[in-house]
């Protein structure tokens, strides 16, 4: 059995910007080695601040961040060498070629030139043909790939992606997902923030939700959906039902256009669906069809943010 150690440990992390804006409040979070962790949150929730603090771009107000047991304030060099960052903005030197800009990043991180490695990296990101192009001639999607290539140029084992597929078309987004899965397979720990719930649902092993600078929940993806997800059953009735019979009042049913709706908490052990079926039979309510639906991660996310 693979034992996942905690590669990043964040404890009681606070960030207050000048002007007294509190961006993060007592954040505790652990990231496991080799996992894909998705951090979800609305705009201004504190996602980028959190990533920026781990990557050394923003100062800590209080609290600690440890990477592989090392405090980022005590041993920043050792830690930074292991981290790659794809920032949210497409920040590139527009006059540089793809090849030069990726080599530049590798050099900044203290690595000697390795043309073969960079060649393979560019090929894996479908950038090899563009290696002689200057950044200003590339499309947004291509620039985003270069940002990923730059983040991987120094062979990091921890990769942060701050909204990596923002503004990227569906096909390229799916390509990127495949590439990130391949990276995870090679042992890279991936932490990504995203607005696309579908992306988190597709990619993540665990999901953290942050809102107003506070971590609302951290849970395995499947467990989160199971734990907080609601189930919904719709009965397409044979005959119109003008009013819900008194015997069915406990089920809090709703009716609309000859469809009877029942929403329930799947983790509630007191609920037995068979009771509803029995009650419908007793009331002689017949139906042509039944559809069931489990709430999506998106619905769970919206609910969590609303209630936090």
């Amino acid at each position: 059995m693979l034992i996942m150690i905690e590669i990043i440990e964040i404890s009681k992390l606070n960030k207050t910007y000048a002007g007294k804006f509190q961006a993060l409040t007592d954040v505790d979070l652990s990231i496991k080695s080799g996992e894909i962790f998705a951090l979800l949150g609305p705009n201004g929730a504190g996602k980028t601040t959190l990533i920026s603090m781990i990557c050394g771009l923003v100062r800590l107000t209080s609290g600690t961040i440890r990477v592989d047991g090392k405090n980022i304030e005590d041993q920043p060099r050792d830690i930074r060498q292991r981290i790659g960052l794809v920032p949210q903005e497409l920040t590139t030197n527009m006059f540089e070629t793809v090849w030069d800009t990726v080599q530049f990043t590798r050099g900044l991180f203290g690595f000697k030139k390795n043309n073969k490695f960079i060649e393979n990296l560019l090929k894996s990101l479908s950038l090899w043909d563009k290696r002689k192009n200057t950044m200003m001639t590339l499309s947004g999607g291509m620039k985003r790939r270069v940002m990923i290539a730059k983040a991987l140029a120094h062979e990091p084992d921890i990769l942060f992606l701050d909204e990596p597929t923002a503004g990227v078309d569906v096909s390229l987004r799916k390509d990127m997902w495949t590439q990130l899965h391949a990276l995870r397979k090679s042992g890279v720990t991936i932490i990504l923030t995203t607005h696309y719930i579908e992306e988190a649902e597709e990619m993540a092993d665990r999901i953290g939700v942050i809102n107003n600078g506070k971590i609302v929940i951290v849970e395995k993806k499947e467990k989160l959906i199971k734990k907080l997800g609601k189930k919904h059953i719709s009965f397409k009735l044979d005959n119109e039902l003008k009013k819900i019979p008194k015997r069915l009042a406990n089920f809090k049913l709703t009716i609309k256009d000859k469809v009877l709706h029942y929403e329930y908490d799947s983790k509630n052990t007191d609920i037995h669906i068979s009771n509803l079926f029995d009650a419908l039979k007793t009331e002689n309510i017949t139906y042509k069809d039944i559809t069931t639906k489990q709430s999506s991660l998106e619905e769970i996310f919206v609910e969590l943010v609303k209630n936090s």
């Binding site: 990557c55 060099r77 920032p87 903005e89 920040t91 530049f104 900044l108 991180f109 203290g110």
Partner: peptide
């Protein structure tokens, strides 16, 4: 100034460089 202007300064600040 140019990396500050374009935003690429994040590379220098996040790299293992004093």
């Amino acid at each position: 100034y140019f990396p500050r202007f374009t935003g690429t300064i994040y590379e220098q600040l996040s790299a293992p460089i004093s």
